[in-house]
Amino acid sequence: MPEQQWPLWEVFIRSKQGLDHKHAGSIHAADAAMAMENARDVYTRRMEGVSIWVVESRYIHASNPDESSSLYDPANDKIYRHPTFYDLPDELKHM
């Protein structure tokens, strides 16, 4: 008989100061209600957050690390994509 494991969930917490939810870690839970409680109990014990998101890990699709050279290296020599590449005329203020 295979070992029964509850599904894995990813937890995102928004702190009092923060505007965005940040990935805090993962927990196991049988359903969303339990995931929310487990996230509260495991990740907000030291006043870390004022808002929690949970999502089942299987719904997150991640890029493949093996493909990183083809995905990210081509951006290396495209410095014209940064605004600092362009010279601004002296007359132009407030940029």
Partner: peptide, 11 residues
Amino acid sequence: PILEQDIALSN
């Protein structure tokens, strides 16, 4: 029974 509930009850 699992880490998450161990923490919950300890809380």
